[in-house]
Design a protein around this nucleic acid. Structure first.
Lengths: 162, 162
DNA sequence: GGTGACACGTGACCC
DNA sequence: TGGGTCACGTGTCAC
């Protein structure tokens, strides 16, 4: 038949190989970002660049992820030690002389959270002033910390207008 | 010289092209995960799979990122809108009839935080019961959410013992 | 000695 | 007409 050693097996095998190879090239083209050049060389270099950008993207995302998790962890730690649903514990204290004279009322706030005690007191007093609710008898507030956990204690004694 | 049209330019050009192509193949091999087959076909298919896994990885990371950001945003919104130290806003509401009869007092809690409203109410009522402070007139509580941010509103009306 | 992978030169095609 | 790309058949090497 043909030339020496024209063994068509070889030809066909090589043909199949080429087809398979081109198929893989085609598969790759589909995965590349649109607008990329289509020739084999460009496919290869584009793929190279694309791989690098994807890897960089993954690195950035992982780093961002770590930071976000850090923030969440610190936030959760800050509140997981603060009581029931975790955030704040508010106690309305028993008025010491409520049953006798009915003229005073104690509002006790125990805030188990990292907060600014001064801002807290100012806030409460502002509210009371806005309300014109009562005349103020006394205010005492203090903070203390029990193993990394801040507590704010505020006692506000009011006299009910008569 | 050689056969017809042996124009060595063409031959050389084609040689250069092949070299360049093979160079790109080599570049690609370096980027693939170690242990991959090295022949051209395997390089192409491995690259294809690798691209897909990287894309999937990016998708997962982005999704995880979104969830984390969601949590952070809701947390921050929950505290940035609450005044002072940010965590919880407590308002003592003006008693509607305080100036006239002095027998009722409204305790209004607006908790701008993601919390369990039932646990909140139970907690407050427990405290009040412990204190034997007053008789309970009414309790109403509800939650509503304003764009991903949970609010809990509790109104407790007490009658002061006379 | 058959199978698969590779490089090569060559003809064809297209800006 | 010339540079770039492609597919093809073939020779060769390795297992």
């Amino acid at each position: 038949m043909g030339g020496p050693r024209s063994s068509s097996h070889h030809v066909i095998s090589e043909r199949r190989r080429r087809e398979k190879l081109n198929g893989s090239f085609q598969d790759l083209r589909m995965l590349l970002p649109p607008g990329s050049k289509k020739d084999k060389g460009s496919v290869l270099t584009s793929t190279r660049n694309y791989l690098n950008t994807l890897k960089a993207q993954i690195y950035e995302l992982e780093e961002k992820n770590r930071k976000l998790e850090m923030q969440l962890v610190s936030m959760n730690e800050a509140r997981e030690t603060t009581g029931w649903s975790g955030r704040v514990k508010v106690q309305i204290m028993k008025a010491s002389d409520l049953s006798t004279e009915l003229q005073h009322i104690n509002v006790g706030l125990t805030v188990k959270a990292a907060c600014d005690i001064i801002a807290l007191v100012l806030h409460v007093l502002e509210r009371l002033k806005e309300m014109g609710l009562s005349s103020l008898l006394s205010v005492d507030a203090y903070t203390y910390s029990s193993q990394m956990n801040l507590f704010a204690r505020v006692n506000i004694k009011l006299q009910i207008k008569v």
